[in-house]
Amino acid sequence: MNAEVTRRPLITAGTALGIGMGGFVDGIVLHQLLQVHNMLSAKYPTRGIPPEQLVVNLEINMFWDGLFHVFTWVMTAVGLALLWHAVRQRNVPLSTQTFVASMFLGWGLFNLVEGIIDHHVLHIHHVTDTDNHLLWDLAFLASGVVMIVGGWVAIAGDRSDASPMERH
């Protein structure tokens, strides 16, 4: 008897990898390259303070940014484990469109959930800790919504015939 064909394992794996890698994009591009969006920058600001205090605040933020990267690393590892689980099942079609779309779905979920909780509920940081941070925070949320909708539409519209039974 054939097992039920399902894309769920692949979508879950791609979403987990998207969350993890979206977190890494956030950490690398925003936290490190642009040096904004640091984890506790609303409480320990890194703008407009004396250099001596700036060093202390930067290092405190660096510590919590490191912890944030631990979580994103764990999510990426979970995603890899789920992907391994998916590719070993013969009833899971390995569609590139579904997988890539799922990663965008995960990235969007990361931006949306992280943005709502950290920026708007807990207020531990904002995208930029400046007077007009709301605009940037809303843009961050919007980017999440766009990737979620785009990913979801691409997953739903995937009609590729990646038959699992033809896999070796």
Binding site: W64, V74, M75, V78, V113, D118
Partner: peptide, 10 residues
């Protein structure tokens, strides 16, 4: 607070 988004995502 740092960990908060992750249980929701999971």
């Amino acid at each position: 607070a740092s960990f908060a988004p992750f249980p929701i995502l999971i």
